[in-house]
Computed example of a mutant assay.
Amino acid sequence: MMKPIAIAAFALASTLGTAQADTINVGMSGGYFPFMFVKLDELQGFEVDFMNAVAAETGDDVNFITMSFSGLIGALDSGRIDTITSDREAKFAFSQPYVFDGAQVVVKAGNEDTITGPADLSGKTVAVNLGSNFEELLNALPNAADIDIRTYESNIAQDTALGRVDAFVMDRVSSAQLIAESPLPLALAGKPFSEIRNALPFRNDDAGKALRDRVDAAITTLKDNGTLAEISNKWFGTDITVAE
């Protein structure tokens, strides 16, 4: 099992101005069901409900900004938003984790026994979503040089089911939900091989840390009063906001 890492994979926050700003800007890709997605021109999902609940606790408004996942990179430094990977932990101020998940290999149904762990990915073509952290996770594996990693903007599940790639990797929760709801012949292969913790990153300055502390206090309240678990169960049918 790989060493657990802390990342903010989906929602990223900054202020419009001072530490006491009344609007929290939240950057999202808008295309990662059920974490965040657009339906009938409305942004929905776990992260949307989560950030609305946080803003209700802090007394702030929330402003969602959607763009491509790769377009999020660099925005937090410029005072807007950014996406954070594990090698940037020292650069930003993070909230406490609010999602505990794991990287999961998915294969065409019937091929589950061919991949029981990361070592079995050698010699395989493995797809990941463009801009996701899973490409980084695969590249950190000892056998990374033997894995043909392919990035996809779409059709990642379809191409796996059709045998165009041997497997794809995404988070365990979304993988299980995709398999349950999709007619495609897909199956989980082995257990999650890396813990993933979602946390919100903020600029590592006084204003950013002050907002981080306010949001962190709100997250603690939402955990303690059961709101966070309710939001999780609404979208996932289980509580992914606590470590197993």
Rank of each mutant, 00 (worst) to 15 (best):
T238G: 00
L16K: 07
V99L: 12
G59I: 05
P192R: 10
A144P: 08
N143L: 11
L178W: 10
S95K: 03
A157Y: 14
L188I: 14
Q96S: 12
G208D: 00
A189P: 01
A140P: 03
L186T: 09
L178Y: 15
F64M: 04
F10Q: 10
R214G: 02
V48F: 02
A90G: 01
F37I: 02
L43P: 06
G45M: 03
I115C: 10
S194Y: 07
G31F: 04
P201S: 04
D206L: 09
D41M: 03
K39S: 12
V107E: 04
N225P: 01
L222T: 10
P97E: 05
W235H: 14
Y32S: 13
L186W: 08
D82Q: 03
Q158L: 15
N143M: 11
I149E: 09
D22M: 06
L222I: 11
P142W: 15
F94H: 09
I73E: 14
A109D: 08
T58Q: 06
G45E: 04
G31D: 15
M67E: 11
A6T: 15
E195I: 11
R164D: 03
V62E: 05
F236I: 13
R214I: 12
A75Q: 14
V173L: 12
D146A: 15
W235L: 08
F50I: 09
D239N: 15
I219V: 13
D239A: 07
K209H: 00
S14I: 09
L130I: 04
D120Q: 08
N129F: 14
P4G: 07
I196C: 05
D224K: 10
M67N: 10
A210N: 00
N139Y: 03
S194H: 11
D49K: 03
G27F: 04
V38W: 01
T85K: 06
T241F: 01
V242S: 10
D224E: 14
G71V: 01
